[in-house]
Simulated scan of single mutants.
Amino acid sequence: MQKILITGVGGQLGSELQAIAKQYPQFEFIGVDRKELPLDDLNKIKIGLDKIKPNIIISAGAYTAVDKAETEKELVDTVNHLAVAEIAKWAVSNNAKVLHISTDYVFDGTSKTPLDELASTAPINWYGETKLRGEQALLRALPEGIIIRTAWVYSEFGANFVKTMLRLMREKYSISVVNDQIGAPTYAADLANVIMKIIISETWVPGIFHYSNCGEISWYDFAKAIQEISGRDCEVNGVSSDQFPTLAERPKYSLLNTTKIQNTYGLSIPQWKDSLEIVLRKRLLKNQ
Rank of each mutant, 00 (worst) to 15 (best):
Y211F: 15
R133D: 01
L138P: 05
F209G: 06
G215S: 11
T150M: 01
M165C: 14
I217H: 06
W204M: 03
Y187R: 12
S155C: 06
K172R: 15
S230K: 12
F222V: 02
N213F: 04
A223G: 00
L138G: 01
F209N: 03
F222H: 13
F244K: 13
E144W: 02
Q227M: 13
N213C: 09
G215E: 11
S241H: 01
Y187Q: 09
I195C: 07
P245E: 01
G183C: 02
Q243R: 14
S174D: 01
F157L: 04
M196A: 08
L247D: 07
E171Y: 07
E202V: 00
C214K: 14
A151W: 12
V205C: 12
R170P: 00
M169E: 09
L138R: 02
F244D: 06
L191I: 04
D233K: 15
A159E: 14
E228W: 10
R170A: 14
S176T: 05
V205H: 14
A225F: 05
T203R: 15
S212Q: 15
W152G: 08
A223R: 01
I198A: 00
A248V: 04
N193R: 15
S201V: 03
R149D: 00
A188H: 12
S218N: 13
Q136C: 07
Y220G: 02
I229C: 10
G158C: 09
F157G: 04
I226H: 06
N193H: 13
H210G: 11
D190W: 04
E249L: 13
W152A: 07
G183N: 05
Q181V: 03
F222M: 11
E144L: 13
I200G: 11
S230V: 09
I148A: 12
F222P: 06
G215D: 11
D180R: 11
I175G: 04
L191M: 10
I229E: 05
R140Q: 11
G183E: 00
F161M: 03
L191A: 07
R140S: 09
R167L: 13
L166D: 00
N213W: 07
Q181A: 12
T203L: 14
W219K: 15
S174K: 14
R149C: 00
Q136A: 14
A151M: 09
E249I: 04
A137P: 03
D180M: 12
C214F: 07
A151D: 10
Y173V: 09
I182C: 08
I182K: 12
G231W: 08
E171C: 07
